[in-house]
């Protein structure tokens, strides 16, 4: 067992959990807007949301690193006005994860919103319910599989994040060192057994998460047919 195995694992899972919770809160309104809105800038917004799917994580990490540094106006604003020094901190890699995993949350939610029949929300409107009430009481309960998919994919994807964290956070044990970076670090130091401890953990966790997801959504699909 590597010396800071549990510390690194706690940090990795903490990062994934925080990312998932924050992205649920951000993703629901964003996906709602993309699923229901008809505006000219929509393709642009969709492209920005999906960009992390195709960009090398190092590109995202590199620009975030620049944005957070005192060499840019945004960085100076963050550091001097808000007192937020994000580079090489947990908060910094959290922001990076939010950007990196955004499409894994938004795309299932957008599909979920589109799959709920329009007449359900229209029925709620004719019953005098506001858009917010309709979202909360009608739309979200009828897209639970999509919510589950978004949350699980975001969590699993954040677990496996490497490039963004490395660029923004570096490899500070207990602060920014996540399991995927620890694997690389141990392997570079020829500690194969310790790299294996991390690698095997990630493999098992990712596999278990996906099996759970497919088991739950399959059961859900069966229930919906009844």
């Amino acid at each position: 067992m590597p010396p800071d195995y549990w510390q690194t694992l706690r940090l990795t899972l903490g990062l994934a959990a925080c990312t998932t919770v924050l992205l649920l809160a951000l993703g629901v309104p964003l996906a709602y807007g993309l699923a229901h809105g008809r505006y000219r800038l929509k393709p642009l917004v969709e492209a920005v949301v999906s960009l992390p799917l195709v960009l090398p994580p190092t590109v995202i990490g590199f620009y975030l690193l620049l944005a957070f540094s005192d060499g840019t106006a945004l960085g100076r604003f963050l550091i001097n006005t808000l007192g937020l020094s994000l580079n090489f901190t947990f908060a910094g890699i959290l922001v990076g994860s939010l950007v990196y995993s955004l499409p894994f949350m938004v795309q299932p939610l957008q599909a979920g919103f589109q799959q709920v029949p329009r007449s359900l929300s229209e029925a709620a409107y004719t019953l005098g319910k506001s858009r917010l009430t309709t979202l909360w009481r009608v739309l979200l309960p009828n897209m639970r599989p999509a919510l589950l998919s978004g949350a699980v994919l975001t969590f699993a994807h954040t677990l496996g994040e490497f490039g963004v964290v490395l660029m923004i956070g570096g490899n500070l044990p207990g602060r920014t060192r996540v399991a995927s970076i620890a694997i690389y670090d141990e392997q570079q130091a020829l500690h194969y057994a310790q790299a294996n401890a991390y690698a095997l953990t990630l493999l098992v966790v990712a596999f278990a998460i996906l099996v759970t997801l497919f088991y739950l959504t399959k059961k859900d699909a069966g229930r919906r047919l009844l």
Binding site: P117, L120, N142
Partner: peptide, 13 residues
């Protein structure tokens, strides 16, 4: 007003 939809639009949950 009350609106009854062709597909009923009952809330399935």
């Amino acid at each position: 007003l009350g609106f009854v939809f062709q597909d009923y639009a009952l809330f399935p949950h």
